[in-house]
Design a protein around this nucleic acid. Structure first.
Length: 593
RNA sequence: GGAGCUGUGGUGUAGAGGCCUAACAUGCCUGCCUGUCACGCAGGAGAUCGCGAGUUCGAAUCUCGUCAGCUCCGCCA
């Protein structure tokens, strides 16, 4: 920079600076060459300001300006001048002024970028990810990262003010059963042994409670080797916390405060508290989902009773064999074409639904292939329950409860999108509480923890742990925002006998439990306070605040769906020598080219 | 592991058996231009149509395979 020192950021300049001599540094956003006069929009992190090159003001600078191109890095020395009234640009924050440059230094040249550095680009994500450093120059992406910074700062401020300590936990830790697949790291000094990257700091934060830290938090990276989605990356960030001597109510209340504070401070979004609460059962019954989107209605209605006694064999058979028949009223969708209904039938098939029955409600009566199977009074009950009006379209799915919930829950959202029922400017929070403690995994043929193995059962349900585990409710809770699971946690088991009961329910023998979690069980014998906590998906939180459809847009260097980094080309092969040091022999069928 | 969508100059798209020696916009290069801000005007360069087989007299276009990206199901305590 040859001794030059930046005096202002681009958008710091206002009419108050007119006459000031300033030094700006930044990138060439655009250059407009009028032959005898050259305009350059200079971009830095703050935004744009117009530079003017005129032979009358800076002859040498003007000659240099003829040669500059997009994304060149400049240092410009010049004078702030007010623009004449007719040349004011109301679209720019700095549109009332411009900087007449009398000295220009090209700090660096730049190749022509593969895409425009501007607000709304429509470029293949391949290219954006390969040239992520250019993608991140776009104001949109810079805003996302700035927002992310503000959110973590706000959360830290809040938790600090409430007496939480930010404490780090290991990244190289122990692989444990249950939960997601671990990312493994081979140990050089311990041949044949592996560390695991943490899926979450769960065990450590509980141990910190045993250690008497009382209130812990961390903004922490977590790793799960599972398939990716728009809102799932192999490494992601949690705002993780744990507290001693608390009940469910304490945590829910405090977290409502934290979220309200953070949303207001970081994004200017007002969040109303307290949040509505649903039990897991209620959420599944009414919305077919444990993360209900409350921005619109269209709740599910149950017709299992009517179906069981009807002449419609498809429904009746499901109803009497433990299944459910439920429906949804697609308000004002009576005009849907045969094709649209077929498409929706295919849509619910993804979730395992074998069919999608429907009734069209019109001014002239009902139209439906299934009408003939129902008595008039049965139909009346259905219409009443749906509060059906002419113009409505009623859909039904009959299947086992999990399929009905998944299919209709997804259909509800699909219809809302199709009918544009979702207000994208509202933030509808909710708590979902009393999740089941465990569910039966048909594939593994055993009970698995829904939350995690350290989740405390509801006191009065403990008696069912042996006889009827599916009935046991957990002291667990999820925070849901606009149909997205934002965070979840629980009150933990702090007694060794209950923890052992839990392990045994999950099919872990005392020996296995001891091998995998012995240190934790032992720790629990040294005076463990009752404790509980929660963790929030920071990436998802930012995604929702920034109104993005994928967390990739709020992560500086995300991975593709096949878990690769297109910029660094990770993962990559390593040398034989590296493998030898790690005592690893590869068993890869054929190295792909 | 499975289903679907996409892949054509640098970028975004059009072309859907022969009209293609591949079109349009933008970007890029050259020249002109002293008030533009998506500057304008004139000219120019730039693509073996993701890759590989096949069908056909003929393939960007049809078929199969494959690769990559995306969305979803399974999976993700």
């Amino acid at each position: 920079m040859q001794g030059l020192k930046r005096t202002h950021l681009a958008t710091e300049l206002t009419t108050a600076d007119v006459g000031e001599k300033v030094i700006l540094m930044g990138w060439v956003n655009t250059r407009r060459d009028h032959g005898g006069l050259i305009f350059v929009d200079l971009r830095d992190r703050s935004g744009l300001v117009q530079l003017v090159f005129s032979p009358a003001v800076g002859g040498e600078a003007f000659v240099k300006a003829e040669k500059i191109r997009s994304e060149y890095v400049l240092a410009a020395v010049g004078e702030v001048r007010r623009r004449s009234d007719e040349t004011i640009n109301p679209k720019l924050k700095t549109g009332e002024i411009e900087v007449y440059v009398n000295e220009l230094r090209v700090l660096n040249k730049a190749k022509t970028p593969p895409f425009y550095i501007e607000e709304d680009i429509d470029v293949d994500e391949n290219i954006r990810l390969k040239y992520r450093y250019l993608d991140l120059r776009r104001p949109d992406m810079q805003r996302n990262l700035i927002l992310r910074h503000k959110v973590t700062m706000a959360a830290r401020d809040f938790l600090d003010s409430r007496g939480f300590l930010e404490i780090e936990t290991p990244m190289l830790t122990k692989s444990t059963p249950e939960g997601a697949r671990d990312y493994l790291v081979p140990s050089r000094v311990n041949p044949g042994k592996f560390y695991a990257l943490p899926q979450s700091p769960q065990i450590f934060k509980q141990i910190l409670m045993v250690a008497g830290m009382e209130k812990y938090f961390q903004v922490v990276r977590c790793f799960r080797d599972e398939d990716l989605r728009a809102d799932r990356q192999p490494e992601f960030t949690q705002i993780d916390l744990e507290m001693s001597f608390v009940e469910v109510e304490d945590i829910l209340g405090l977290m409502e405060e934290m979220i309200a504070f953070t949303f207001r401070k970081a994004a200017g979004i007002t969040v109303e508290t307290p949040f509505p609460r649903f039990t897991y059962r209620e959420a599944m019954d009414r919305y077919g989902s444990d993360k209900p989107d409350l921005r619109f209605g269209m709740e599910l209605k149950d017709f299992t009773g009517i179906a069981a006694g009807s002449d419609f064999k498809v429904f009746a058979a499901v109803a009497v064999s433990g299944g459910q028949v439920k429906g949804i009223n697609a308000k004002g969708c009576a005009h849907f074409s045969r094709k649209e209904i077929d498409d929706l039938t295919q849509f619910v098939a993804i979730y395992g639904a074998k069919g999608l029955a429907y009734i069209v409600v019109t001014e002239d009566g009902l139209k439906s292939p299934i009408l003939k199977f129902f008595k008039d009074e049965e139909i009346k009950v259905m219409l009443d329950k749906f509060e059906a009006e002419p113009g409505d379209l009623l859909f039904f799915v009959a299947d086992q409860p999990s399929v009905v919930a998944a299919a209709l829950g997804a259909l509800r959202i699909e219809l809302a999108k199709k009918k544009n029922l979702i207000d994208h400017d509202v933030y509808k929070f909710a708590w979902v509480v009393e999740f089941p403690l465990v569910e039966y995994d048909e594939e593994e043929r055993r009970w698995v923890a829904i939350h995690h193995p350290f989740t405390s059962p509801v006191e009065q349900d403990i008696e069912f742990m042996e006889g009827d585990p599916g009935k046991v409710r957990a002291r667990a809770y999820d925070m849901v925002l606009n149909g997205v699971e934002l965070g979840g946690g629980s009150i933990r088991i702090h007694r060794r006998d209950i923890q052992e009961k839990m392990f045994s329910l999950l099919g872990l023998s005392p020996e296995e439990a001891n091998e995998k979690f012995g240190f934790m069980l032992e720790a629990f014998e040294y005076g463990t306070p009752p404790h509980g906590g929660i963790a929030f998906g920071l990436d998802r939180m930012i995604m929702l605040m920034a109104k993005k459809d994928t967390i990739r847009d709020v992560i500086p260097f995300p991975k593709t769906q096949s878990a690769t980094d297109l910029m660094t080309q990770a993962p990559s092969e390593v040398t034989q020598r590296q493998l030898r040091e790690l005592h690893i022999k590869l068993d890869v069928a054929k190295a792909k080219k």
